[in-house]
Amino acid sequence: MNVTNQQKKYRIPVIPTVITLLLLITTSAAFFSFTNDHGKKAPVVNADSLASVQAFTQVYRVLMSPRCMNCHPAGDQPLQGEDSHIHTMNVHRGTDGKGLYALKCTNCHQSKNVPGVHTPPGNPKWALPPADMKMVFQGKTAHELAIQIMDYDRNGHKNKEQLLEHARDTLVKAGWNPGEGRALPPLSYTAFVKAWDTWIEKGAFAPK
């Protein structure tokens, strides 16, 4: 039942969205320059606000799907399941994002998926973002999330190259290998990477 709701939520009519976006961009397009780890501004070539925002709209659908958002919660507890309920067992982030005491992520989550339904999904890096860099997705608008991802001080201190690289990260990829019984993100992994790259390469514009 929850799956159906989730799908409905993402079934956004394409044409009105594009029109809305065009209107927004022409009135209040936000342009982001990249900051590298030396604080220098990196120039953006091939800036295209329309293409960039369109790409982020696709990226956003993925980031807000349970496979991504569940480990980017608004609170200090991970989320779980297709309905993104708070993880049972009172699991908490801890300062390093790896859980606390006898409830550390890797106490249950192995380096790869364990066969069977309702077994903990696995990845060698399974964790939440750390407490000093929470990288919250849950509850964020596309605008807010785009700005946050481009913010060197809120994105885990990633420059452009590192951001591009992040889409290739094993933990990000784990979203497309969620274990038995879990829904995949709304885009294929290839489509996601393409949208991610396009968004960034075309100037990392944020939809309003």
Partner: peptide
């Protein structure tokens, strides 16, 4: 399936759930 904790042992000092730990 790592729900109940009855199988908890220490692996290098951490409280792993041995029922799903290969």
């Amino acid at each position: 399936v790592a729900q109940c904790g009855a199988c908890t042992v220490h692996l290098n000092g951490e409280a792993v759930r041995s029922c799903i730990t290969p």
